[in-house]
Amino acid sequence: MVENRPWMTFFTHVVLILGIALLAFPIWVAFVASTHTLQTLLNPPTPLLPGGEFFENYYRALTEGAKAVGAPVWSMMVNSLVMALGISFGKIAISLTAAFAIVYFRFPLRKFFFWLIFITLMLPVEVRILPTYEVVADLGMLDTYPGLIVPLIASATATFLFRQFFMTIPDELVEAARVDGAGPLRFFKDILFPMSRTSIAALFVILFIYGWNQYLWPLLITTDESMYTMLIGINRMLASGDSQAEWQVIMATTMLAMLPPVAVVVLMQKMFVKGMTETEK
């Protein structure tokens, strides 16, 4: 603050608190709805304070799910978790090795591979929906974990991030390692990998959120209820056909679907911010 204007400081705080309240309002309403009976929700106005059905609704969601979908939320949660972790670790692993090869080796086709990886930036799933679906169907990967994970783990962003980071590592380290008789794999394992830890952690936070929040891809390739991720499960619960959508269960599921990524951002805020500002620039 440049000058002291008490009135303006007050105004700033009021605006910020209002902004936060406005942003959080939809989630508060969802939370409140997840603690009432369906009957209460069907007779508006919706209450603004939590009711007494918290345990019933969450227990029912986790163990049974909504009537419209034959899978309990805990199994969807496992699927979402497997997918998010698979995508994060997969992307980090193959990007680390690719960046290592591109930075620390000279070989024919190096430039070509680099551009090939770059091109993936320009081909999000959304622009190649049908043909990618066909490839995965031909490989027999529909309704499987590899089908959910593998097509999404190529990553130009992660490869560039690691390449960028490796370029800042002094050449003397490589020389020293070579003098001591370390081969490339030893150098990678004992020097490069430990040095990359913070970058890996920051990237992991971003990728976990990215993986957990995937929607279009699981929507296309999962038809078996036992393979639904949480977000797909919510969509199926909403489309309950003729019967009444069970909003209290849907809202409990929505809260559960939000919890892991939000927890990651709040608990690892430093890493999250680092990851955001480094991967997206």
Partner: peptide, 23 residues
């Protein structure tokens, strides 16, 4: 070694990005 190291990334890129896009 360098080919083995880039292989996973390249194989996935070709199978799930380049090939479908060309299709």
């Amino acid at each position: 070694l360098p080919y083995l190291l880039v292989a996973p990334q390249i194989v996935i890129t070709l199978a799930f990005f380049i090939w479908p896009a060309s299709q």
